[in-house]
Amino acid sequence: MKQTDDLSDVIKLISDIKHKNIQSSHDVAIRTEKMLDNIISQGKWDSALELMELIKQRIKCFSQSLPDEPTASNIMKHILKVIRTECQSMSKKTGDTHSLHQIVTGDATHELDYSETVSNLKSVLLGYLSEYKEELESSAENIAAQASEHIHSNETILTVGRSRTVERFLKSASKQRMFSVIVVEGAPSYLGHSMASALTKNNIQTTVIPDSAVFAMMSRVNKVIIGTHTVLANGGLRALSGIYVVALAAKHYSIPVMVLSHMYKLTSLYVGSNDHETFNVHASPASVIPYSSGSILNSVNIKNPVFDYVPPELVTLFITHQGGNVPSYIYRLLSEMYHPDDYDM
């Protein structure tokens, strides 16, 4: 195996994300795809095994630096799975017939030897990547196209903070239906304000409320439509803090909660609670209480967690570009996206 890989491409990506040069997860996805394209077309690899090794190194590097940013790793894991399946389909020996017996007993006699040189793997993979790129670009559009199936006339929709996917979704629905949107401002980042201004400019009736009014308003809401940061393997969410309360209030009033998500947000990660050390990120307390508050800051413990864990039972539906899915079906989507060997890295 050649050891000349310097990981400079992934380090550049990490630093761009850290310095907020690229912010939306969609941009991260596009960049990751480009990086993979480079590795496959110009990287030094002869066999599938070597290529997979190159990508795995990058996943490790990325997930160590940015454990809470799943998009890039997810896409790379997905490509790993694609490499495996392509190899499988090209090598004639492996019968594509997994018998039920083999699946049940987990008989591993069909382990492939990825170290063989496969001649046309590169062109096949590049072909798949360009297809995948198209899918990325049309994903938001596909999600938005389903809007009219979910939003009816005169409905009141509640959303939290700002999500580009949700924004597109609502805009697309507003072309056909009249409805009003309640935007929770989402302290302490107040992204709800920019969401509300974007919706207002699109002539959607918008009401801004503070985070504290969620329960009071929920009785008048028909649907909750939110974006998320990550979809966890059990169908739960890692989402903006404050969304747990929204989902809980929706449950209390039996109001459906719809989560719009791109496929690359699906993560093979199981987390059971939001105070788990690896789960949450803490932002600066300055956005909770200003430094100008004086000496009391010395003796107070101020917390500003970024994420909330939303258990799967509070989510009604996931809407991806492939259509709607319930949380209990996420495991299946996961196995379509990633190879089980790549779940833990």
Binding site: G186, A187, P188, L240, N274, D275, N301, D308
Partner: peptide
């Protein structure tokens, strides 16, 4: 300890 209401679940 001081938090805003969004961190309630935390």
């Amino acid at each position: 300890t001081y938090v805003l209401i969004n961190a309630l679940s935390f």
